[in-house]
Amino acid sequence: MASKVKLPKASDLEAGVLGVLRELLPTFRVSEQRTGRQATWDLTFTVRSGRTVRRLLVECKSVGEPRYLAQAITVLKLASQQSPRSYPVVAAPYIGPGGQHLCREARVGYLDLTGNAFLNFNGVLVDRRSGERPPRTKARLRRLFSPKSSRILRALLEQPEQEWTLARLAAEAAISLRTAHLVVNALEEKVFLEKRRGAIRLQKPGALLDLWAENYRIDQHRQRTFYSFLRDPRELAAKLGAHAASQHMPCALTLHSGAALVAPFVRSADVHAYVRGDVDGVAQALDLRPVETGGNTHLLVPNDDGVFYRTQVIEHIPVVCNTQLYLDLLHYPARGREQAEELRRQKLGY
């Protein structure tokens, strides 16, 4: 496993790129050239090995989100076309998987402050991935996938072809305009959506779902486990749904019990459901016995009512929307990934 490249602080990014390149290319002679005032990029370096010489054109970005990387890539690609034997490179404090993919696809090199680096020219290949996110980036992701913010993501992913205004999107997600504005801006930075003349449209639903799934865990919701003497999970689910409806209580199946109604693939005898309300009252009405282990009925108290967004009713039984169902299933240990992938194939289409 490659050792982490020691990169300078963000404020010293431009000053430290030469040292980084020398560490990445120890068998080459790397020297900095003066970058003319007319240049559209930030730094120029010469890389020599014997008689082979290559110029590196480096653009430094203070933020490594895909939106800003795309701008840098456009500048560098034009510059490298006008400068023979040059290779474009982007440098930033942190470049995440989406940004790395964007650079590789454009055949542009990159390096960042956490040890990620990719250079590919003249038979030279440097490919290092640290897998680490700096604290600031982690905090931004937590905010993006927080309970309130994620309401915007559900609305977008459940209706991926829909065009929105900010006001309509905020109303749909039942959040403030300010929160919607912050979330939309963050998604635009990551090039998950585009804004044109006030219209908002999702661009990469699959990539957004993948990033959310990577940062989602079902154990953020409080779970209570019970045992039911009913042998048929479908019958139990129907009784749970009927009781919740009679009490005007938000309720929706999830995990395998929900998937069995939406995209059957994996069999399970357990029932999992989100419930907002008197859980003890539900247990009493359905004759559920609380247990520590060995239960077959699991009632989850959600950390936000967003889990009930676009609840679907199948055979008179409420089930969470397909986006929520996929998120819950993906990391569930009992064949959850298999069922999630089948659900995605059958119902999500991205």
Rank of each mutant, 00 (worst) to 15 (best):
L182H: 14
Q247A: 11
I73K: 07
A139Y: 02
Q284E: 15
S80K: 09
R104K: 10
N303S: 10
S149V: 08
T114G: 05
A117I: 06
A259H: 02
V124K: 07
E188W: 15
L25Q: 05
L56Q: 00
C103L: 15
Q159M: 03
R142C: 01
H272F: 11
F308P: 02
Q223E: 12
L255H: 11
G16P: 01
A72L: 08
D270N: 15
F118C: 02
Q100E: 11
P205T: 13
N185C: 10
L236S: 12
E172M: 09
S149T: 08
G115M: 04
Q159F: 01
Q100N: 05
S246Q: 10
Q247C: 06
A171R: 15
R234Y: 06
H248Y: 10
L255K: 04
V275G: 08
S150I: 08
C321W: 01
P84V: 11
Y332S: 04
A167M: 03
V262Y: 02
A39M: 11
V47S: 03
T323P: 08
N303W: 07
F28T: 03
A238V: 01
L208H: 12
G96V: 09
E32P: 00
T52L: 06
R267P: 00
P147V: 12
R267V: 08
A79T: 05
N120F: 11
A106Q: 05
P264M: 04
Q339Y: 05
E341L: 15
A263M: 02
G277Q: 13
L24K: 09
R196F: 06
R128F: 04
R197K: 15
V90C: 03
T44P: 00
R37W: 09
A334K: 09
A92F: 03
L24W: 03
R55Q: 11
Y350F: 15
L69M: 09
N215G: 00
P26R: 01
H221Y: 10
L327P: 04
L325N: 08
G206V: 07
E14H: 05
E292M: 15
L343S: 00
A72K: 03
L144A: 06
Q71C: 05
A155S: 08
T137A: 15
F192R: 12
A117S: 13
L13N: 03
F308M: 07
S11L: 14
G306L: 05
D304V: 10
G349Y: 06
Y110C: 05
R224P: 09
L43M: 03
R267H: 04
L209I: 10
F308Y: 10
G16I: 08
G123D: 07
A180M: 08
T114K: 06
I152G: 09
R276W: 11
Q324F: 14
L261D: 00
E105I: 06
H256Q: 11
T311A: 13
E172G: 01
A263C: 04
R37A: 11
D219L: 09
Q33M: 14
L156C: 07
T297P: 07
I218P: 04
I152S: 12
N322F: 07
V30D: 02
